[in-house]
Amino acid sequence: MKPTLRQLEYLVAIADSGRFSEAAERLNVAQPSLSTQVADAEAQLGATLFERSRSGAYPTPIGEQVIRRARYILRQMEDLKEIAAHGETGLFGRVRLGVLPTIGPYLLPRCTKLMHSRFPDLRLSINDAATDRLASLLEQGLLDAAVSTLEDHPGCVGVTLFSEKLWIAVEPDAPLASTTRPVTLEELKERGFLTLGLGHRLTKLVQELAYRAGGYVASDYEGTSLDAIRHMAALGAGIAVLPDLYVQCEARRDDSLVFRQIDDPRAGRDISLVWRRQSPIREGLELLAEIMQDAARRVL
């Protein structure tokens, strides 16, 4: 006999939660039943997959390898279901879409009407997360696609939706607010920059920008959102560095700040719709990308 798909789901759930009880609750099964199935899988494989203790359950070295392959097998099964549900080119049913929090609220509302029109049977399940988290979810097969930066998703392919520049936002009394022309890196020397926390591609861009400009990222404040960064800049806490889509859709209505585009070819990023290389709904995602491209073009 071989481990069943259900047993593989149990193994992955235990590895993710670190406890048999939490895995059982997550999967809506009784813990004794889950424990029995895991023990059966271990017997069939002839190996102990978890080290049990009062503090939790931890994969053994062989368990790590088995669980890694279990994730792959389960992902392939999900792809098989997608082929049957969606067909080769259409988008039907639930599609799990990850999106950067610096993009989703400003792009997706402008796509919704046309998406519903072209794909009336499509139900998008949206997961808003930082770049690192999106990469992990996509790799594990927990997302079908993501609106993100392609370079942060090795092994994935995608379609570029748009390229956006970065802007600074400063309070009206700041020296940098005397003009709205593009700002040079030289003008940003020794300035403090405000940005999001770790795990965001935008944070990496701001860190690199600060280094090249001879400035620094303010260590006493990390914004939880672009709005938070903008408000801190209005209070004089530093220079907010904001992406183009957010500035055009939201920030420029704020008359408590002055906005200047950064005059540097590396002060920007390419946003793409990305998916796993072997995705069974690739053609449908390409159609979805066209809708997003059009929405971004109207804004930028």
Score class of each variant (00 low, 15 high):
8 L>W: 05
8 L>G: 00
9 E>A: 09
12 V>H: 04
18 G>E: 05
19 R>Q: 13
20 F>M: 08
23 A>H: 03
31 Q>S: 05
35 S>T: 12
36 T>D: 09
37 Q>H: 15
38 V>Q: 01
44 Q>W: 09
44 Q>D: 11
51 E>T: 14
55 S>R: 15
64 E>V: 14
64 E>R: 15
64 E>F: 14
65 Q>V: 12
79 D>Y: 02
79 D>K: 02
80 L>D: 14
82 E>V: 05
84 A>C: 11
87 G>E: 02
88 E>F: 04
97 L>N: 00
98 G>T: 03
106 Y>Q: 09
107 L>D: 00
109 P>V: 05
110 R>C: 06
111 C>L: 06
113 K>T: 08
115 M>Q: 05
117 S>M: 10
122 L>C: 03
125 S>R: 04
128 D>R: 11
129 A>K: 08
133 R>H: 12
135 A>C: 11
136 S>M: 12
137 L>D: 06
139 E>R: 10
145 A>I: 01
145 A>H: 01
146 A>Q: 02
147 V>K: 03
154 P>I: 04
155 G>Q: 09
157 V>L: 08
162 F>L: 13
171 E>P: 01
173 D>R: 14
173 D>K: 13
174 A>E: 13
180 T>S: 14
181 R>A: 12
181 R>P: 02
182 P>F: 04
195 T>H: 10
198 L>H: 15
201 R>E: 11
202 L>C: 04
208 E>W: 12
209 L>G: 03
211 Y>L: 15
211 Y>V: 14
212 R>A: 14
212 R>K: 15
213 A>C: 12
214 G>R: 13
215 G>K: 07
221 Y>L: 13
221 Y>G: 06
224 T>L: 13
226 L>Q: 06
226 L>N: 04
227 D>F: 12
228 A>Y: 07
229 I>R: 01
230 R>T: 12
239 I>C: 02
239 I>R: 01
242 L>F: 05
244 D>F: 03
248 Q>D: 10
250 E>G: 08
251 A>S: 07
257 L>Q: 00
257 L>N: 00
261 Q>P: 04
262 I>H: 01
265 P>F: 11
268 G>K: 03
272 S>V: 05
275 W>I: 04
275 W>C: 04
277 R>V: 07
283 E>T: 06
283 E>C: 06
287 L>W: 05
